[in-house]
Amino acid sequence: MTPLVVVLWLLNVTLDTVGQLSFKAAAGDPEAGDGMARWKYMLARPWIWVGVVSYVAEFLVWIAFLSLVDLSEGVLLGSINIVVVMIAGRILFRERLTPLRVTGILLVTAGVAIVGVAGGG
């Protein structure tokens, strides 16, 4: 992997994490209410917009990333997003981290490492 590929990969996981956590923050706000009022409430606050901007940027970064690596390698390396978002979610929203989750996180990370190192990382 060239330095540019690594930068795009890191940028992708960062944007994905920021985007997903922002949407979670917007959707999980207990004061948002229901129906149309909920949407008005969410659109008037920054989190949903932070999420949208992150996703648009991620979309472009991901296309750039995929044009530099094999697609099969790209999607495997992209699996790290699951792990990072999960850990960030657990920290920020105090979601539980059970032994089974830790095992899953370690396995996905190990799989990504195998692909990344073999790819010349």
Partner: peptide, 8 residues
């Protein structure tokens, strides 16, 4: 986000 792992 992008149906990947997200990333995606």
């Amino acid at each position: 986000a992008l149906g990947v792992a997200a990333g995606d």
